[in-house]
Simulated assay, not measured.
Amino acid sequence: MITTQALKERWDAFKEENPKSRIRDAAKQLGVSEADLLATQLGETVQRLEGDFRELLKDVPTLGYVMALTRNDNIVHERKGVYEKVSFNDHTGLVLGPDIDLRLFMSHWHFGFAVDENGRKSLQFFDQDGTAVHKIYLTDNSDVAAYDALVQKYLAADQTETIVTVPYPEKEAETSKEDVDVQAFQESWLAMQDTHEFFGLLRKYKLDREEGIRLAPEGHSEQISVDQLKKIFETVAERELPIMIFASSPGCIQIHTGPVNKLVSMGPWYNVLDPEFNMHLREDQINSIWITRKPTKDGIVTGLDLFDKEGNSIALVFGKRKPGIPEMKEWQDVVNEVSAA
């Protein structure tokens, strides 16, 4: 087991050779977790937080205008705004502001840190295996005094304690799907009244998300290319249509609702670079993209599901909608035009 000091020295050497490398990439290169790397800076630029992170999140609105960041390996989702309507039902939480829109799964929030990167202050939270679940960055318009007060309120008594991360067990090998009752699954799909029922269907028929989409009734799912995905983004930008982009870590789903405007490709990354919303999508890691059409009591809901090579969900994209209101026809038109072409 590598000591904290030895890891600190390895990371310092890595940063010398790779000054532009992000901490998440550095951790992978060094064979440790991001939280392990941060912990090497305890007492310097990092302070450990403790206590009930649900209560801490209820205090985040005092910070004012901030940037919320949630990511997985293949997408970074950054949304600026104010945390509003923070609530919890046991270990599941919601943040329901017009800008910051989150679904929180607190059983994955194991470690918390206050981080100061050359004056850029943030609150960063990690799963038991050291994977980042959510980060909150101050902006020029944030309340720094409120941030300092929050950090003091939740500051851990022992700032020298080495953290112990515990890896999750690897996924079990896939079982045969030959015994899936495809007809019953498709009938259940067609009987849905709400898109959230899809999660229950997957559990009932023991399918992962991509398998369920592959088995959809005819006309209710189809595969498209990365170029077609980009064409959809370009078209909604041209037509100024508001969309919803969901990105998730193990402990958080973050949702952008609104238009996308400035679309930029940089190397393997496809980006949205707008004042309030940034998205960085690793397009070379997308293995499949599916259009899905799910029936609800408000009519068909059209979505895009992006998956990596391991079948993990990268992101979900929908037209802007709310329960009780039919989906925008303009969004359906864009998706249908691009898939037909």
Score class of each variant (00 low, 15 high):
1 M>E: 10
2 I>A: 01
5 Q>S: 12
6 A>T: 15
7 L>K: 10
8 K>Y: 12
8 K>D: 03
9 E>Q: 15
10 R>W: 01
11 W>S: 06
14 F>Y: 15
14 F>L: 14
17 E>P: 00
24 R>D: 09
26 A>M: 10
31 G>K: 10
35 A>N: 10
36 D>Y: 04
37 L>E: 02
41 Q>V: 03
44 E>M: 08
47 Q>L: 13
48 R>D: 00
49 L>G: 07
52 D>A: 14
59 D>I: 03
61 P>Q: 12
63 L>C: 01
64 G>Y: 01
69 L>E: 08
72 N>G: 06
73 D>H: 12
74 N>K: 04
84 E>V: 09
86 V>S: 06
87 S>W: 08
87 S>T: 14
94 L>N: 10
94 L>F: 12
95 V>K: 08
96 L>A: 14
97 G>A: 07
97 G>N: 05
97 G>P: 04
98 P>Q: 07
98 P>A: 07
98 P>L: 08
100 I>R: 02
103 R>C: 09
105 F>G: 04
109 W>K: 08
110 H>R: 14
113 F>P: 01
116 D>W: 04
118 N>W: 03
120 R>W: 10
123 L>D: 05
129 D>H: 04
131 T>V: 15
134 H>N: 03
143 D>H: 11
146 A>I: 05
149 A>S: 13
150 L>K: 00
152 Q>S: 09
156 A>Y: 07
157 A>K: 14
162 T>N: 15
165 T>A: 05
165 T>M: 09
171 K>R: 11
173 A>D: 13
174 E>A: 15
180 V>Y: 03
182 V>E: 06
182 V>H: 01
186 Q>P: 04
186 Q>S: 06
187 E>G: 11
193 Q>W: 01
194 D>H: 09
197 E>G: 12
198 F>L: 12
211 E>A: 11
212 G>S: 05
220 H>S: 13
221 S>G: 11
226 V>N: 02
227 D>V: 12
228 Q>W: 12
231 K>M: 13
231 K>E: 14
232 I>F: 07
233 F>P: 02
239 R>I: 11
242 P>E: 11
242 P>R: 10
244 M>R: 02
248 S>F: 06
253 I>W: 02
254 Q>W: 06
264 V>W: 02
268 P>N: 07
269 W>L: 14
271 N>D: 05
274 D>L: 09
275 P>I: 11
278 N>D: 15
282 R>Y: 13
284 D>S: 14
286 I>F: 05
292 T>W: 04
294 K>C: 08
295 P>M: 07
295 P>G: 05
296 T>H: 08
296 T>E: 07
298 D>W: 09
300 I>N: 08
303 G>Y: 03
304 L>W: 06
308 D>H: 03
309 K>M: 12
313 S>G: 12
318 F>T: 05
320 K>A: 15
320 K>P: 00
321 R>N: 07
322 K>N: 11
324 G>F: 12
326 P>E: 06
327 E>N: 07
330 E>Y: 05
330 E>F: 06
334 V>N: 00
336 N>M: 09
338 V>W: 01
